[in-house]
Design a protein around this nucleic acid. Structure first.
Length: 213
DNA sequence: CTCCCGATAT
DNA sequence: ATATCAGGAG
């Protein structure tokens, strides 16, 4: 599909609005970012950061998560929601990381996606952010919503939307574009009450299906 | 498509 | 009190 406005100027405006767009999860190693991104499923980055601040002092690497008591880990992860699934995912992911990848976070999307709890969004966050690799475009709930509102896509499925965005946006922009769209969705183009009056991207938005804002 | 779940906005 | 937020697996 053809976007309402040319992509180059859209990217330029987006860069002006979010000059140093980056993912807002706190991490010090690729492994920590991987865990934090797993925990971020259905949960705000802010809450994940509160949990990981203490979590990463207690669990210093995949070894610690692999050997942890599952019940204790569940309690540590409780505030992020879906804590039983997440504890299981983090623990089995850590074990597979040790067994199959020598405890190192793999640097390809194909390998990352084989880990439990890791799908394209999580893999792209890790690759884009920790390794600066343009493996794909991060498509989370914000990017889905913003892309649709801006008329960049009419697709519904995140994977289809990612394909469309990868086609529209030059690859060397992907690691900027994803995080910038996330920030725009989080702070301006919100799901409930989009700030259309103060939106820097308004010129690129057909405002179709956007309720009063 | 349903389930997983706590936290915050309304 | 209840709706909404926000990914992945089965």
């Amino acid at each position: 599909m053809v976007p309402a406005q040319p992509i180059p100027s859209l990217l330029q405006q987006l860069r002006q609005a979010h000059p140093d767009a980056r993912y807002e999860l706190n991490w010090t190693t690729p492994f920590e970012l991987l865990v934090a991104t797993l925990l971020a499923a259905q949960c705000t980055d802010e809450r994940v950061n509160r949990v990981t601040a203490t979590l990463f002092q207690k669990y210093r690497g995949p070894q610690d998560f692999a050997q942890a008591d599952t019940g204790a880990l569940e309690e540590d992860l409780r505030p992020t929601g879906f804590y039983k699934q997440k504890a299981k995912a983090v623990q089995t992911m850590s074990r597979e990381l040790l067994e199959r990848f020598g405890g190192e976070v793999p640097q390809t999307l194909e390998q990352l996606v084989t880990l439990p709890g890791v799908a394209r969004k999580t893999a792209n966050v890790v690759l884009n952010t920790a390794f600066q690799l343009p493996s794909g475009v991060i498509v989370d709930t914000h990017v889905v919503r913003v892309s649709q509102r801006m008329g960049l896509t009419k697709k519904k499925k995140p994977e289809d939307i990612e394909q469309e965005l990868m086609r529209l946006v030059p690859q060397d922009q992907w690691t900027f574009f994803g995080p910038a769209m996330v920030l725009h969705g989080r702070y301006t183009c919100m799901a409930r009450k989009p700030q259309c009056g103060a939106c820097p991207m308004a010129a690129f938005c057909p405002k179709i299906g956007v309720e009063e804002g």
